[in-house]
Write a protein that binds this DNA or RNA. Structure first.
Length: 875
RNA sequence: AGGCCCUUAGCUCAGUUGGUUAGAGCGCUACCUUGACACGGUAGAGGUCAGCGGUUCGAGUCCGCUAGGGCCUACCA
């Protein structure tokens, strides 16, 4: 048959053509058929701002492997793709673009700015989708969703209104994490802490009406302008007498009360006196509420000092104000000491700005009623989180969860469905009211705040399927089966989907969460532009092919961090080339197509054929089992080992004598061709989820019944193919061949030199060695094999897999290396035998160990004894 | 501060409930242009499984301690 294949596999020439073929034939699309077993999965929507990075490549490779495996295994499979509008990230990017052009978003105004963002999204927002296609992702692009789509926006409004009506969304004034650069509130999970070198300033506060001073310590002296109290511990003997008195706040010269607070103050820390700034510190805020202290805001939304901080500070940036305060304190002698200090500082994860705790009016989700069912769902096994150790992290966070601030003072995103009339009456409704239900005013304005991006992505598994409508997609594909994502968004996203899913659909949105590790560089370092160790997936796809990249990611992914090295990808590119050439070899000989080939008569197979089918069957079993456990590493490794080291290294070599007509009958040859086709076909199908492109390219040439390998059935293990006896005998042949090659190399013979081999075997085994002597002759390059003959003196003896063999060399050339080697082997065998002997005379061992272990030890003991005896003859 | 994890070949890592001789990829050495493949083949070197102690007939695997490294969460005046 067969067209010519090029000598080397060239991924670039086939990948895009095959992907276009799959898309055109709509193989990615599931059926709207509720009767068939389904498998569904939703993509973690990448941000529209994103370019594909290696983390996306990983998570989407893992999803695609699962999806292709399930699809081939007969499931009606949906992989639903989409993108996230990424409120802050996108706004930041477009903002920066505008800044480059010398425009501020405030010049444009909200509406014009949002138009710009949509334009930006049209141009760049789907780049990442095209990149996912390069990877081979078999998602159903006809269902592509975007979190700001009308349908998804409707779901968002519906959820907001429902939660509001249920009393689970409220508006309130509270201290939040504020980003002075983005000028918005953010949630706790969006704050990243980093240990920073800083200073601890010790400042004297005079006690009013006395000469005494109270020394406090602070890392943020500028906030003292907003101090409204000092606090000490009520049981601290040193300060019992000052409780209730007043201190004089330096610089501002205000009198502030001294209060007792056992929660805020740790008497062991510092001087035991704490300044209290209720408007600018979380703990002080709480302490202020406990002690009825006024809140004095001295820093504004942009991080600048307010008028309340004093005339000379108003308008200064908080850091400049700090310098000024320190300098003034120094001048007045109130600055007692400055110490180097290291403490953790919160930064906005998106822009890196230092977070400023501020009191502001925000919208919150009351989280406890949502969290409790979400905790239970994981506890009772409705949802399982893998690797399981993440469950503890999930519980820990969920059990200490705080209300979720969901409003953001941004422009790009879902505007809250909250409307105010001219008389400031508030209406919460999914559709904009034309007039105020309370006063009839027709001057309605919508809340300017938008929702946290994660509010909409929290609805992703069902909003993408048309919820809140009752759609076929929802009834067939929801809840989904598996969620694959990075552990870094377990709180941002996974927890919120579970909470929302349970609340609004009554069902867990997925039954399994698989959290993949972080891709690092080959030395285990995080990839970062600064370090310059970033691997761009598109670059490596260009260099090694998508299949090699995917295979590398899969074989390294066991749930933990992945140290990715280019050398690794190079290795699997070589594997792809190996597959290509093994197939090339096979196709040079195969003369039927898969669809026209006759069924294999399993009753008249050769031992070698039964062996390779048995090995392939075992591999098939392993791959299916490990994939269902998300052990991508074991699955891909099993195929790799089988294909390269059993199929290529041994089977193809063993079948060559028959295939090339050096041995056997015409019928043997025909059968060999048929089995070769069978093994290649099954191997390719087994491998397809991991390496979709190369397997498709080759498989199409084999002429199967199905139009594509991706819709051909996935192999499953079949018990009749297991053949322990064939495996035992071929193992023996392999060991004999290895032994001969080894001895040849040791004695300094070339591969061209041929020898006589003596093999000892009984009954059926002897008959086997007679029949398959040609294998030994061909692969070990022998002149002949003598079964149960008497080897001449000077032959080299060995015992492998329980069979005694001897090699007759042309003359007795015993090299020093060889003697040393024999000595080493003897030493090893003796040592092992020694420990085995000790074990077997130990009654405890014989009594307590399982019989199989004891029998194994005895068998090994016998083998070692005979091996030692034979090795001694070589000296 | 609390919790979790890691330490196995030169490098990066597997090693499932304790059980024969601890594996892989890359790298390294020697030989081989054998009619699928030099992105190849064959053979080989390389490990006191971080250290110490314990449980057990038996420990890389279980327990404790020590040392080093990483991650997460919360607070740090």
């Amino acid at each position: 048959m067969s067209e010519e294949l090029s000598k080397r596999y060239e991924p670039a020439t086939i990948e895009q053509r095959l992907y276009a073929f799959w898309e055109k034939r709509e193989f990615f699309k599931p059926l709207l058929d509720a009767e068939r077993p389904k498998f569904s999965i939703v993509i973690p929507p990448p941000n529209i701002t994103g370019r594909l990075h290696i983390g996306h490549a990983l998570v989407n490779t893992l999803q695609d492997i699962l999806v292709r495996w399930k699809r081939m295994s007969g499931f009606n499979t949906l992989w639903l793709p989409g993108t996230d509008h990424a409120s802050i990230a996108t706004q930041l990017i477009v903002d920066r673009e505008l800044t480059k052009q010398g425009i501020s978003r405030f010049d444009l105004g909200r509406e014009k700015f949002i138009e710009k963002v949509w334009e930006w999204r049209e141009s760049y927002g789907n780049q990442i989708i095209d990149q996912l296609k390069r990877l081979g992702a078999s998602a159903d692009w006809s269902r592509l969703r975007f979190t700001l789509d009308e349908g998804l926006s409707r779901a968002v409004r519906h959820v907001f209104v429902t939660l509001y009506e249920d009393g689970l969304i409220y508006r309130g004034i509270a201290m939040v994490n504020w980003c002075p650069s983005c000028r918005t509130a953010i949630s706790d999970v969006e704050v990243e802490f980093d240990e920073r070198a800083s200073k601890l300033y010790h400042i004297d506060y005079p006690l009013a009406g006395s000469d005494r001073v109270l020394t406090i310590a602070t890392t943020r002296p500028e906030t003292m302008l907003g101090d409204t109290a000092l606090a000490v511990h009520p049981d601290d003997e040193r300060y019992k007498d000052v409780i209730g008195r007043e201190a004089i706040l330096p610089i501002a010269n205000r009198r502030i009360p001294i209060v007792a607070d056992s929660i805020l103050v740790d008497p062991e820390f510092g001087t035991g006196v704490v300044k209290v700034t209720p408007a600018h510190d979380k703990n002080d805020y709480e302490a202020g509420k406990r002690n009825n202290l006024p809140q004095l805001q001295v820093i504004d939304e942009s991080g600048k000092m307010t008028v309340a901080a004093g005339k000379e500070f108003a308008g200064l940036d908080r850091l400049d104000a700090r310098k000024k305060v320190v300098s003034m304190l120094g001048d007045t002698g109130a600055l007692r000491d400055v110490k180097d200090y290291s403490h953790s500082v919160g930064f906005h994860e998106k822009c890196g700005t230092t977070i400023e705790p501020l009191i502001s009016r925000q919208w919150f989700v009351k989280i406890e009623p949502l969290a409790t069912p979400a905790i239970n769902a994981v506890r009772d096994g409705t949802i399982r989180i893998l690797p399981q150790l993440w469950e503890a992290t999930y519980f820990n966070w969920m059990e200490n969860i705080h209300d979720w601030p969901i409003s953001r003072q941004l422009w790009w995103g879902h505007r809250l469905p909250v409307f105010y009339c001219a008389n400031d009456h508030m209406t919460v409704a999914t559709d904009a009211p034309t007039s105020c239900p309370q006063c009839g005013s027709t001057e309605m304005t919508q809340e300017t705040d938008v929702l946290d991006t994660w509010f909409s992505s929290g609805l992703w598994p069902f909003s993408t399927m048309g919820w809140p409508d009752d759609t076929p997609d929802l009834s067939i594909f929801y809840p989904t089966d598996v969620l694959i994502t990075g552990f870094d968004i377990i709180f941002f996203w996974v927890a919120r989907m579970i909470m929302f899913g349970l609340r609004f659909t009554g069902k867990a949105p997925f039954s399994t969460v698989f959290l993949n590790g972080l891709v690092r560089d080959e030395f285990g370092q995080k990839m970062s532009k600064v370090k310059g160790n970033v691997i761009d997936p598109i670059d490596v796809i260009d260099e090694f092919g998508a299949d090699a990249v995917r295979f590398t990611l899969a074989i390294l992914a066991s749930g933990r961090d992945i140290p990715l090295a280019k050398s690794r990808m190079q290795g699997y590119a070589a594997f792809a080339n190996k597959i290509w050439n093994a197939s090339r070899f096979a196709m040079m000989h195969i003369d039927t197509t898969l669809s026209s080939a006759k069924a294999i008569d399993r009753d008249c197979l050769s031992t070698v054929e039964r062996w390779i089918l048995s090995r392939l069957n075992e591999t098939t079993r392993t791959v299916n089992r490990t994939l269902s456990d998300f052990r991508y590493d074991e699955a891909s490794n099993a195929i790799y080992q089988f294909f390269w080291h059993e199929f290529c290294d041994w089977y193809i070599e063993m079948v060559k004598p028959v295939l090339l007509g050096r041995h056997g009958t015409e019928a043997d040859q025909q059968r060999a061709k048929r089995v070769l086709l069978e093994v290649l076909d099954r191997s390719l199908r087994l491998l397809h989820p991991f390496m979709p492109f190369i397997t498709e390219e080759i498989w199409l040439k084999l002429g199967g019944v199905e139009p594509s390998i991706m819709v051909a059935p996935y192999p499953v293990a079949e018990e009749p193919l297991e053949d322990a006896e064939a495996e035992r005998m071929v193992r023996a042949v392999q060991a004999m061949i290895t032994s001969v090659r080894n001895a040849r190399a040791e004695r300094g013979f070339t591969p061209k030199d041929r020898f006589k081999l003596y093999v000892r075997g009984e009954g059926r085994d002897a008959a086997f060695f007679d029949t398959y002597a040609y294998l030994l002759i061909d692969l070990a390059r022998l002149t002949e094999v003598i079964v149960n003959g008497e080897p001449p003196a000077g032959a080299q003896h060995d015992v492998v897999e329980g069979f005694a063999i001897a090699i007759e060399f042309p003359e007795k050339v015993v090299t020093k290396e060889q003697l040393e080697r024999t000595e080493r082997e003897l030493e090893k065998s003796r040592k092992e035998l020694e420990s085995l002997d000790a074990k077997l005379v130990n009654e405890q061992f014989v009594r307590n160990a399982p019989p199989a272990i004891v029998q194994g030890a005895q068998a090994r003991q016998a083998e070692l004894r005979s091996r030692i005896e034979k090795l001694l003859q070589n000296q």
